[in-house]
Write a protein that binds this DNA or RNA. Structure first.
Lengths: 211, 211
DNA sequence: TCAAAAGTGTTAATAGTACACCCATGA
DNA sequence: TCATGGGTGTACTATTAACACTTTTGA
C-alpha cells in the first residue's frame, strides 16, 4: 500500500522546557538523566514518542508525569535533528515549552524524578543541545509576552503589580520603568484589581488577578 | 550502552513549502505525489530523512532535488506529528519553508517532478495536512518581512519599487499606501537605486537592488 | 492628447520612553 | 521616626497611518 518500506526509521523524543516563576525569577525544571548515555548529567524533562500517541500528546503525557499537571500552556518550539546530537544513538527531538504555576506543581513528583528548579539566568550546563533549547524557548516567550497575557500561566492566582513586573523583567532580562509598566498593563486590560491586600509589605499592596 | 532499545521508531519526513514571487503574487511549489498513499494528489515537495544526514541537511537535499538550488533561505517551520496524518503509515513530518528567486529555478526539474507554481491565494486542496503547513508558513513570513529584508530572496536582482511593493502586499495580504511604503523601505536601508531604468512602463521606473 | 504607471510631503494619531516625588505602615 | 515598598502624571520622541496631485512618455 505504501512505498515507504525502504526508508529508515528513527527514535523520536520529546523534550520539554518547563518554566515556572519562583523567588522572583524565571526558572526552568531540570533533572538528572536516569539512563545512559550521559546518565546523571543535567537534562530537560523528556521522553520518547510512543506509537499510540501524537507528538503533542506525548508532550502532554511527559509534562503530566513530571509535574502532575494537565491543561497547561504548552507550545511546540522546534525540532533538533543533528545526527550526533545524542551520542548514544540517533534521536530526533521535538521540543516544547510549557508555562506553569509553581504553586500547582506536585512536589512529590520532583523527589521521584530528581527534578529541581533552576534560575534561567544561572543555568548550569545541560546535556546535549538542551541549553540551546532553553535559550530559544526564552526568546520566544520574550516575544510572546509583549503581545499576549501568557503571564497568567506563571503567576499565582492573586498577585501584586510589583510581582507581575518582576516576572516581565525576568523574562525580558531588562529592567522596566514602574509607571510605564503599570500603564501598559492597565491599557491591555488583562488583569483586574481585587479587594484583597497583600500584607507582606508595610504599606500593603493591592492584589490583582487575571481576567 | 543506551537504554533506548525498547522504544519505537518512526518514519520521519521533511516537507518543504517553497515560495517564489511570480506574476505579481506569492506562489508555492507543489507537485503530484508520485507514490501511494494519495498517489496523484497535490502535495508539497517532500522526502524522507536518511540515516546519514541531519534533518536540516535533508531539507537542503530535497530542495536541491526539486529546484536545482543551493544556498537558499530556508527555515524550519514546525513538526506535524498526528498519528493518522498520513493514512498510509505513521510519518512524523518536519516542515521547512524556503524563499527562492524563480528566475534561478531549474524549469527542467519541474517537468521531471510534475511540479508547478500556484498562487497562495488560490491554493488547491493539498494532501494530508499540507494546506495547514502552507498557511502557517505564510503567517511566519508575514511577520518576518516586517523586520527583515527577506524580500531579497524572492525578488529578481533588479526590480522596481512597485514590484517590491506588490511582493509585500501579496505576502501580507493587504494593500499598502505607496508613499508610506517607499518611505519605510528607504529608512530601512536594505536596497539601493541603480542607474538602470525599467522601460516596460511608459514613463520608466528606476531599478533597485538589495545591498 | 490621453491613458497608465512613476514619483513625491504633510499632518494627525498612537505608541513608547524618560523621569521624581509623596504615601502608608510596621518595626 | 524612619526605612520600605506602594502608588501616581506629564512631557518628549518615534512610529505609524491617512491622504492627492504632478510627471513622463508611448500609443
Amino acid at each position: 500500500m505504501t512505498a515507504y518500506k525502504s526508508y529508515p526509521k528513527f527514535f523520536v523524543s520529546v523534550d520539554c522546557a518547563i518554566f515556572g516563576f519562583k523567588d522572583g525569577h524565571l526558572n526552568v525544571l531540570i533533572h538528572q538523566r536516569p539512563y545512559e548515555p550521559a546518565k546523571g548529567e543535567l537534562s530537560l524533562i523528556g521522553g520518547f514518542v510512543q506509537t499510540d500517541e501524537s507528538v503533542d500528546a506525548s508532550a502532554k503525557r511527559i509534562l503530566k508525569e513530571f509535574t502532575g499537571l494537565d491543561n497547561v500552556y504548552m507550545q511546540q518550539l522546534a525540532t533538533y535533528g543533528e545526527i550526533e546530537r545524542d551520542p548514544g544513538e540517533r534521536v530526533i527531538s521535538i521540543v516544547y515549552y510549557a508555562l506553569i504555576n509553581v504553586d500547582n506543581y506536585d512536589e512529590r513528583l520532583s523527589k521521584i524524578h530528581n527534578a529541581k528548579w533552576v534560575d534561567i539566568d544561572n543555568l548550569p550546563t545541560l546535556c546535549f543541545d538542551h541549553n540551546d533549547m532553553v535559550q530559544k524557548a526564552r526568546r520566544v516567550i520574550s516575544e510572546t509576552i509583549k503581545n499576549e497575557p501568557i503571564g497568567s500561566n506563571l503567576m499565582p492566582q492573586y498577585f501584586t503589580l510589583s510581582l507581575l513586573q518582576s516576572l516581565y523583567e525576568s523574562i525580558l532580562g531588562t529592567p522596566i520603568d514602574k509607571r510605564n509598566f503599570r500603564r501598559s498593563i492597565s491599557e491591555k486590560d488583562y488583569i483586574q484589581a481585587t479587594n484583597l491586600i497583600d500584607r507582606t509589605s508595610r504599606r500593603g499592596a493591592t492584589l490583582y488577578k487575571f481576567k
